[in-house]
Amino acid sequence: MIERVSGIALNTFRESIRDKVLVTLIVFAVLVMGSARVIQPLALGEEAKIVKDLGLSAITLFCVLISILVGGRIVYREVEKRTIYIMLAKPVRRWEFILGKYLGLMSVLVVSLVVMTAAFYLILLILGVGAPLSLLLAVLMTLFELAILTAVAVLFSTFSTPITGAVFTFAVYFAGHLSRDLKLLAAMSPSPVVKAASYLFYYLLPNLGNFNIRPEVVYGVPLDPSALLLSGLYSLVYTATLLLISAAICNRKEF
């Protein structure tokens, strides 16, 4: 089982890492982080915070783009190009195929995160604004967020086209960051229908706001380690659930 899953993951990693889309996105991310040098004089004494905030936001944004753009077509492309016929005619179970594709894409995201973070620290050192290791916590939380988002992208990829899948995944991403507002709306709305719908979406959609600790690390606000641990656990459970649903859909699918 491990051999097959890791084989598919390695194949997905190789395919994606050699794709021009990925390289372009990483280059753009580094350029955006580097652009901090240009806006630095406008920061009025807050240079260090703005450079760090911009860098961490660029890392998150571009990794989210990679997750959605590459993840959204990851299974669909296999069906479209019929490479899935060859994969599934081997002694590979369908859930192994989904897990392998997911892990391959996550490996790509980990490598992208490492490259972007290394570039980010290099820029911080060049600009001389300080490069505390606590910033890595924000990157780690981005990885937890990407784990969920990639599982959402893979789920949509099992039954929709890449464009539809990307739109839906973007929608989940934005709604996931607004889930606290959904809870607020549910509490304040007088309409029972709006209340019920708001609660439904609040509990159904991933609470991605939990993973945004960028303001805390940039402004040096102390973090609660148990909250971070809980977020990691939440990411693991949510991701596993989504992958199980994806595998169930793939299992019922006729090619």
Partner: peptide, 24 residues
């Protein structure tokens, strides 16, 4: 399969290696 299509960015050796690995 009919009119087979494979992974663009893999080399022939890598792809056959994958096929061998998946086949046990």
């Amino acid at each position: 399969p009919e009119s087979p299509y494979f992974y663009d960015h893999l080399t022939a050796r890598e792809f056959l290696g994958l096929a061998a690995r998946l086949s046990g």
